[in-house]
């Protein structure tokens, strides 16, 4: 035993390939560490998004009709288009890894550029969708939605557009508690500076504009309201537009949080791609050393997977309720 223990390894005179960090013995070990580390990171990401998915699950199971209403109002064509864009970008990313493995520099560079273009396209579409929602007054943040001036109304996307109804909003339960907090920033300054401007706005407080309760009525007629909904949408046995709106706002909150976090990950991904592009262009990756491409690829595919779930959950579920009136 003891003699075996004396056996030593000289780590200093063997060949050090480029890109090998000092704490590792060889490229295999480094590659394996990077791979496990990246997967651990992705597990962390799963749980990070998982918290949001749990929130979605809880609220959807309580208020399916409000969620269907909110979901049906999203633009399914933009959503589906973006899904396609992301899947194509995943393909180009996978090809980038392939060309890195086979040591083809120009093909790598082209694939990375394509991936970046597609990622940017996705974000652009997302920005258009966000802007639409903003102009329609359904960004769920108190005090935003200010631009919902009367003259901008015709711009909003057709079909299921929700007209703002100032009267119902006056009774908004939002305004009731802690009104001081609602006042902050927006309505106060608008009315102080120029009183007459107020008239032009349907929504001086920037409240969440939603009046459509048709799905709740449908569910009531067909008798598939959940027990939570029977309490959550009704006042004195009547459907309460404000209470229903509050539930739709939760949907939009979840929509903005989830897609926003996803978009943030896309932006980080684009940063990674830019770095990869520079490295690939300078020929850093060879058939022996391509771990950064592979790891960034894992990240990119993960972000794609999140979207693969977000798309049906946010855009599609509940479409069949609205199929008649859509």
């Amino acid at each position: 035993m003891a003699t075996h223990a004396i056996d030593t390894h000289d780590t200093h005179d063997h060949y050090h390939p480029p890109g090998l960090q000092h704490q590792f013995e060889d490229m295999g070990q480094q590659q394996e560490s990077a791979s496990i580390g990246m997967w651990m990171f992705l597990v962390q990401e799963i749980m990070f998004f998982g918290g949001m998915f749990t929130v979605y699950l809880v609220f959807r199971s309580k208020f399916p009709m409000a969620f269907a209403a909110g979901s049906n109002h999203l633009n399914v064509y933009w959503g589906a288009g973006n899904t396609v864009v992301l899947i194509v970008s995943s393909l180009t990313m996978a090809l980038a890894v392939h060309y890195a493995q086979t040591g083809k520099r120009m093909a790598q560079v082209v694939c990375i550029i394509l991936t970046m273009i597609l990622g940017a396209t996705f974000l652009g579409v997302k920005a258009i969708e966000y802007a639409d929602k903003y102009h329609e007054g359904i960004v769920p943040v108190t005090g935003l939605n200010l631009r919902t001036a009367l003259h901008t109304e015709p711009n909003t996307a057709g079909g299921s557009h929700v007209p703002g109804d100032p009267d119902s909003l006056e009774k908004s339960s939002l305004d009731a508690p802690s009104s001081a907090e609602n006042q902050r920033g927006t309505s106060g300054s608008a009315s102080n500076s120029a009183g007459h401007v107020e008239d032009e706005y349907v929504n001086p407080n920037g409240n969440f504009l939603w009046t459509d309760t048709s799905l709740a009525e449908l569910a009531q007629k067909e008798d598939y309201l959940t027990t939570a909904e029977k309490v959550g949408y009704f006042s004195n046995g009547q459907i309460d537009a404000n209470k229903f709106r509050d539930k739709v706002r939760i949907f939009y909150y979840i929509y903005f949080m989830m897609t926003g976090l996803h978009a943030l990950h896309m932006i980080i991904g684009l940063g990674l791609m830019a770095w990869l592009l520079w490295k690939a262009w300078s020929g850093a990756f060879t058939a022996d050393y391509f771990s950064p491409v592979e790891m960034s690829g894992l990240y990119w595919h993960f972000v794609d997977i999140v979207w693969i779930f977000l798309f049906p959950l946010l855009y599609l579920l509940g479409r069949h309720f609205g199929a008649g009136g859509h």
């Binding site: 809880v58 208020f63 769920p140 005090g143 935003l144 339960s173 609602n182 509050d246 939760i250």
Partner: peptide
Amino acid sequence: ARIGIFDPAIGGDPILFQH
């Protein structure tokens, strides 16, 4: 932003926060 996800007054759920 006072969105109401944990606020019972506007449909939210404080127990979800605890979970």
